[in-house]
């Protein structure tokens, strides 16, 4: 368990992480029972503040809610066997794991599923099944000094994911930003990479893989830049 990530339990429990940190923490959760328990406890503690904010809903809301549900079918229960897949523990199957994470994103979008507190913490097997069907899955690895980065991608899923090791935390006020780089050298922001204290990090890249010839990582001011402002630390070519 990374002590740094562990300290995010409180902020995560009250939804006070920014999108980038939230994503990093949600990748950490499946493999860390201590954090899951603490999040549940701190969340319940925070929710007691709700006793101070109760308010009478507008009169028409009940009818609107009940009218709405009559047109929506409840989702079937998830298969029991789906529930536990600690991504982080399966080091050997990392490429498959990242693609599972990538596929989970695809499924969430394609299926129009509502985010639900437990579903992100426990990736569904359907996501894995999806990946197993991604017959074109490929990986490319790049080393630079202590830093190793592996990119897994699938044109079929139109998703890629990166995993790094040996990457020190970004300096205060900076962040590692991911880019899809086109044939014309144009760069498209593809999200962020937040390594844990042990130098390891994983991230599913944002946006479509289409038109990208490579993936790059640069150090940018916190919050990211519209285009790279520093030389890339790593570049990995796609085929």
């Amino acid at each position: 368990m990374s002590p740094d990530l562990h300290h995010l339990t409180g902020a995560y429990a009250v939804d006070a992480l920014d999108a980038e940190e939230r994503a990093a923490f949600e990748r950490h959760l499946p493999g860390c029972a201590a954090c899951r328990d603490e999040v549940a406890e701190l969340r319940a503690a925070a929710q007691t503040l709700g006793a101070l904010t109760e308010a009478t809903p507008p009169v028409g809301l009940r009818a609107a809610v009940l009218g709405g549900v009559s047109t929506v079918r409840p989702l079937p229960p998830r298969d029991e066997a789906d529930s536990v897949l600690p991504l982080r523990r399966r080091r050997r199957a990392r490429a498959a794991s990242w693609l599972a994470a990538a596929a989970a994103v695809v499924l969430l979008v394609a299926g129009g599923l509502a985010w639900s507190p437990w579903s992100r913490e426990e990736p569904a097997r359907t996501a894995l099944e999806q990946v197993e069907r991604a017959t074109d899955a490929a990986t490319v690895t790049s080393r630079s000094g202590e830093v190793t980065a592996t990119l897994a991608y699938s044109h079929e899923l139109d998703r890629s994911a990166i995993a790094v090791s040996g990457l020190p935390s970004a300096p205060e006020g900076k962040t590692y930003q991911l880019w899809y780089i086109g044939a014309d050298e144009s760069a498209r922001g593809a999200g962020f990479l937040v390594p844990a204290d042990d130098g390891e990090g994983e991230s599913v890249l944002r946006g479509s893989l289409r038109g990208a010839k490579a993936v790059g990582v640069t150090l940018e001011p916190a919050g990211g830049s519209p285009e790279p402002t520093t030389d890339p630390l790593m570049v990995m070519s796609l085929t």
Binding site: P57, P58, L61, A64, V65, G68, V69, V72, R73, P74, L75, P76, P77, R78, L113, A114, W115, S116, W118, S119
Partner: peptide, 19 residues
């Protein structure tokens, strides 16, 4: 009001996922 309505719709749709 809008957010609350969306929340209850999500709750209805994902109610089987509650553990």
């Amino acid at each position: 009001e809008e957010v609350t309505q969306e929340v209850y719709l999500d709750v209805w749709r994902t109610s089987s996922r509650f553990d």
